[in-house]
């Protein structure tokens, strides 16, 4: 039961990350252009967010050891994702329009501007979502002897969630309004925040 809850939790987290990444790349393309560099920066920035999120999540797990701790970061990630359609247009406009008008944007900035955009819009929610994987390993690992199994399961479930996120985004969600997709993903992440509180109560009783 514990394994099932833990894997479902990280599955949904992995799913949300990839929806943000794929739908996000499409979303940024309207301002940064249909350029190859939009994809490069989106993939690169989100991998940076994941690396930092994993490291941070692991350290936090050792310190707090309570599932309810996750509610905070997840609530922030959820609200932030919901608000992406609200704050992004102005933000991205500022990035694009800072270059002098009527002159071609230098190649260096054609490459780096999308990195700036991806970072400002997608870094925070993906960083916060990445916290949950190592955190869940710590919560679900009862004994050192089974840490290998648990961490393998958590990695796999989170990756399978991400795979689902990629295909569902590309084949299904792309036909819906992008703003609605961001709001729904934000809603899903908020639900995960709620779930972490429920999990906490349940884990406390297990002890």
């Amino acid at each position: 039961m514990l394994k099932l809850v833990a894997t479902s939790f990280v599955f949904l987290g992995g799913f949300a990350i990839m929806v943000l990444e794929i739908i996000g790349a499409r979303y940024l393309a309207k301002d940064f252009g249909g350029s190859f560099y939009v994809w490069i920066s989106q993939i690169g920035v989100i991998l940076i967010a994941l690396a930092l999120g994993y490291a941070t999540g692991g350290a936090l797990a050792d310190r707090f050891q309570r599932a309810q701790f996750l509610a905070g970061p997840l609530a922030v990630a959820g609200l932030f994702s919901m608000l992406i359609p609200n704050f992004t247009p102005g933000l991205v406009r500022a990035i694009v329009m800072r270059h002098p008008l009527d002159r071609d944007i230098p190649l260096l900035w054609q490459k780096l501007d999308p990195v700036l955009g991806s970072t400002l819009v997608f870094f925070l929610p993906c960083f916060l979502l990445a916290i949950i994987s190592p955190y869940t390993i710590r919560l679900a690992a009862r004994r050192i002897e089974t840490v290998g199994t648990i961490s393998g399961l958590v990695y796999a479930a989170s990756t399978v969630g991400s795979i689902a996120g990629v295909f569902v985004s590309g084949y299904v969600l792309i036909d819906y309004p992008l703003s609605a997709v961001f709001r729904a993903t934000g809603g899903l992440i908020l639900a995960l925040a709620g779930l972490s509180l429920v999990m906490d109560r349940w884990l406390q009783r297990l002890r």
């Binding site: 309207k30 940064f32 252009g33 249909g34 071609d104």
Partner: peptide, 10 residues
Amino acid sequence: NQDGRMFLNR
């Protein structure tokens, strides 16, 4: 050498 929409924008 640019994206079309970006060019129009600017």
